[in-house]
Amino acid sequence: MTGCSSKSMVLVSLLGLLVLLLCGTSEAQSNQDCCLSYTKVRLPRWALKGYTEQLSSEVCDIPAIIFHTSSGLNACVNPKEGWVKKHLLFLSHRLRKMSA
């Protein structure tokens, strides 16, 4: 029966080593505002005032761009879509012009 405790020790420490770099308990926050899905329609460029980026590496699960419209709405859009990329270029260009 020496086996039982030493075997289990080996088992546990092996498993511990396996997940050495990855594991860890997390006290993650689930109380922040996040985009959960994307807007299904295109937004006209003139309605946009600015944008924010939602990073999936932080508390939110999915990557997203949040377009702020001039009427005060926030639209979650998919950063991978072509029209979003074009709008982003336009917005950052306009921002640069304004700060210059």
């Binding site: 985009c35 899905s37 994307y38 299904k40 329609v41 937004l43 926030n74 979650c76």
Partner: peptide
């Protein structure tokens, strides 16, 4: 458009 916009989930 506004009616079709998906906003961030307010928590």
């Amino acid at each position: 458009y506004a009616s079709q916009i998906t906003q961030p989930c307010s928590k």
